[in-house]
Amino acid sequence: MASVKSLLTKPWIWSFLGALLVWLATIVFTGGYGAGGMVTAALSLAVFTVIVGVGQMFVITLGPGNVDLSLPANIGLASAVAMKVMDGNDSMIAVGLLAALACGAAIGAANYLLIWALRIPPIIATLSASFIIQSIDISYGRGLQIKPPPGFADFANWQVLGIPVLAILTVLFTVGAAIALQRMVYGRSVLAIGQNIRAAWLAGVNVGRIRFLTYMLSGALGGIDGALLAGYFRGANVDIGNEYLLASIAVVVIGGTSVAGGKANVPGVWGAALFLVLLLTMLNTFGVSAGVRLLLTGLIIVGVITAAGGQKALR
């Protein structure tokens, strides 16, 4: 019983409970039909939200005002860069992935350069950067080969016993991210900056370097996400990352990370990503129109932030 109680105090447990609830509601509606397939599909799609969600989580944890709004544009450009470098050629897959990673990291570095050198608030810096990135993408992506090499498309859709291989790899990655957050000097420093940036500086944390690394990490994860998305959907395009602006922030918040900074958790990103994908599946199954779907998603995010805010007041 004690272990159940301690489990209930974890901030991420609620997102998993929500996901489970939504899944149960759907299979009750369908009479048990397609329960397993739904999980497989949810895992496949959640992967992409989780990857950018982890990057966004580190950025948001840096404290109020920190957010990476350039992720959608970043994903779009990196997907095009990756597909162009791979050029439909299986032997170039690794090089293409590296190129996407480098492209994303460069965008992250550029974001921080704007924030640091011009002292622009991150929300404005990343938003304006995203316009520039999008323009580059549009002029760069025109008339290019955007189909992935067949080997890469197969890899992105590869399943073992109904479990997407990409999801397994992403679980490993998130375990690493959780360790980095809680047990590495980098993660501790991010948490310290998010709680009190001045105190962090006075306690000897290299604030500038940690913020730089964090924006670069978020950018790099956006880049790799773009390449994987292009592989999964068998093609890159400018709009491929659009839904990840709201989704990346939503999974961070629903997952129990504090919007005020300084408090984060990685498992919640998984729970929240599964919850969002399953919620969409459920609403689709119920035959709800697209407008209502968006409305409900928005309301749920507002509800979660309100509930999380109430929790904080208890302290």
Partner: peptide, 9 residues
């Protein structure tokens, strides 16, 4: 409060 404490920790 301003220069020293990390309140979450």
């Amino acid at each position: 409060q301003a220069d020293g404490i990390f309140p979450q920790w």
